[in-house]
């Protein structure tokens, strides 16, 4: 029997349409307190209010700014490390060993140390993001660099591209599929680490961001606001994942026939 092709978009809509009434049914059927399971209407209005009044919008902007700044710093550091690790095999191996040690370390477990070293506040959040983004990007860049075909290397040499010119004109586009894969992992890790760090630092210093927003909703027992914050984190996460990265892939490596 032939399997019926299900459009994932339709499936998504159906899934949401099933979850929403189920939520209401459980809430009303079990006469659960609105503090534990707030009505959908109040979650929706909390979301709208937060967006219209700007309190939620400001925190979204802050979180995105944190992650973009952190990712930017991490990217520059990763390219720099790739460059110095190409200088000698010893440096390359040293970087590899450091990567093996630090890559599996969740950013959030570094927090106690970061608090001691960098204090609390935005700089500590940035350190967590840089850590979460740097290692996956670096390991992918190194793997990509090693897999540049010999013909492209020799083509670059033939047109006398050496040093930074080789990196920019040959190595960067040639490793782009790997860079994108690294960024996908980095985003997933960085976004989670960011929200956790914001919740923690928000509690201490009011550093702000979506994590802090959720934390403050909890303090005020504002359950609808809490769920609204969770929805926003979910939406932004999957929008970046499924729209931004997919769009970049279609415009670059898919168009070039370079998909991994």
């Amino acid at each position: 029997m032939k399997k019926a092709g299900i459009d994932p978009k339709i499936l998504g809509v159906v899934l949401v349409l099933l979850i929403l009434p189920a939520w209401e049914a459980i809430r009303i059927g079990g006469s659960i307190s609105p503090l534990l399971m707030p009505p959908l209407v109040s979650i929706g209005s909390a979301l709208l209010q937060g967006l219209i009044q700007g309190t939620l919008l400001v925190q979204i902007g802050l979180s995105l700014m944190y992650i973009l700044t952190g990712a930017g710093i991490a990217l520059v550091l990763a390219f720099f490390t790739l460059w110095i690790s190409n200088l000698s095999p010893a440096v390359h191996h040293a970087v590899g060993i450091l990567g093996a040690l630090f890559h599996p370390l969740p950013g959030i477990v570094l927090l106690p140390i970061i608090i001691l070293w960098a204090g609390i506040g935005p700089s500590a959040v940035l350190v967590v993001i840089v850590h979460s983004v740097f290692w996956p990007v670096l390991t992918n860049l190194q793997a990509g660099y090693r897999s540049i075909p010999e013909t492209w290397r020799m083509t670059g040499q033939n047109y006398e591209l050496a040093g930074w010119k080789f990196l920019v004109f040959i190595a960067l586009p040639a490793t782009f599929p790997y860079l994108l894969a690294g960024l996908r992992i980095a985003w997933a890790r960085g976004w989670r680490a960011l929200i956790s760090a914001e919740m923690l630092f928000g509690a201490i210093a009011g550093a702000g961001g979506l994590g802090w927003y959720i934390h403050s909703r909890r303090v005020f027992m504002d359950s609808p606001g809490l769920f609204a914050g969770i929805l926003v984190i979910m939406l932004i996460g999957s929008l970046v994942e499924s729209m931004m990265f997919s769009l970049i892939e279609r415009r670059t490596i898919q168009k070039w026939g370079m998909s991994l």
Binding site: P149, T151, W152, T155, N158, Y159, E160, P173, T252, M258
Partner: peptide
Amino acid sequence: TNPDHHRLMVFQNQNQLLPW
């Protein structure tokens, strides 16, 4: 001792044009 564009290599590999 270094490659230059006066001595150009053409490979067997059909992947030699840069794909991007």
